[in-house]
């Protein structure tokens, strides 16, 4: 039997990690929702964000959380650039094709390029940005919680909420949602399609950066670190519903809880299978996810 204290620890940990998954999924759901692209380079972009964050921290010593202000715009530009230069031409060429497989493969190939570029430039070593937050714990009424993960949870909630407000109440947010709902009508309405897509990709990448920074204090950085999170991010996106901000966060937390609590009753490797099963169940029963609409495409 598991003690209540440890059960609660598992719950809190599950929610914290889940919030991080949600944060990673946020960028993905934006890209997936607006452009209908399965972005297989998402993990590699997370890795690049972590690398940039780590090296800036290494040379400047500035607290990683403050660095978000610097790194996010950098990665936004990078994402914008990638979309405009690489993805746009292929997306256009496949405009009339029902399933733009080529785009998916392009992102997968880009992931390989980024990963090995990072390997060549930054080296293969595993590094971590050890700050005061690393290893610190917070006592919440008897439960010990990792400080870094807790801050991650807070930040994830804040960013998700801010992003939600952005989508609902700003002009740009409305444009993004319009493109997501119906690309052609949006174009007819005079919305600049290519530019909006590029901005969407840029924002998606910037959101990733927040997740990357939040991971830095307690997770290692390495050229292949992105792969660890990527499949989970996709599962969260589908679970939560395409293009839904609350869905991404909630979906992430659900997955985090399954992993955390499930591991108390079975081996960690089997919880992975459980997560996949849950995912498949969602796909078969309600593919639009928790908050998605019933629109198919």
């Amino acid at each position: 039997m598991i003690f209540l204290v440890d059960f609660l620890s598992a719950v809190v940990n599950g929610i914290s990690m889940g919030a991080i998954y949600g944060l990673i999924a946020l960028g993905l759901t934006l890209i997936f929702g607006i452009m209908r692209i399965i972005n297989f380079a998402h993990g590699a972009l997370l890795m690049l964000s972590m690398m940039v964050g780590y090296w800036i921290w290494k040379f400047s010593g500035v607290n990683p959380y403050l660095m978000i202000i610097v790194v996010a715009p950098i990665m936004f530009c990078f994402g914008y650039f990638v979309q405009r230069v690489f993805i746009k031409p292929v997306l256009d060429a496949q405009k009339d094709v029902r399933e733009p497989i080529a785009v998916l493969l392009l992102t997968a190939a880009l992931a390989i390029v980024f990963e090995n570029l990072a390997l060549m430039v930054f080296g293969a070593d595993y590094v971590m940005a050890k700050t005061t937050v690393t290893d610190a714990t917070i006592a919440l009424g008897g439960i010990t919680v990792s400080a870094a993960r807790f801050y991650a949870l807070i930040l994830a909630l804040v960013i998700a909420y801010a992003f939600y407000l952005f989508l609902q109440h700003t002009e740009l947010g409305r444009r993004l949602r319009a493109c997501g709902q119906d690309r052609n009508t949006a174009l007819l309405m005079g919305i600049d399609g290519p530019k909006t897509f590029a901005i969407a990709f840029g924002i998606g990448t910037a959101l990733l950066t927040v997740a990357a920074i939040v991971l830095l204090p307690f997770y290692y950085v390495h050229p292949t670190v992105g792969n660890v999170f990527m499949t989970k991010a996709f599962i969260v996106v589908v679970l939560g519903g395409l293009g839904s901000v609350p869905g991404a966060l909630l979906g992430g937390i659900i997955i985090g809880l399954i992993e955390s609590i499930g591991a108390q009753y079975m081996t960690a490797t089997l919880t992975t299978v459980v997560v996949y099963l849950v995912f498949l169940l969602i796909l078969f029963v309600k593919p639009s996810g928790l908050f998605g609409s019933r629109l198919e495409w």
Partner: peptide, 21 residues
């Protein structure tokens, strides 16, 4: 306890908690 875990896990807290228990 015999607890295998996927070597590229993003979080091993569940394993640790199980062990602690």
């Amino acid at each position: 306890l015999k607890e295998p875990y996927p070597s590229n896990s993003s979080d091993l807290t569940p394993v640790v908690l199980k062990c602690k228990n």
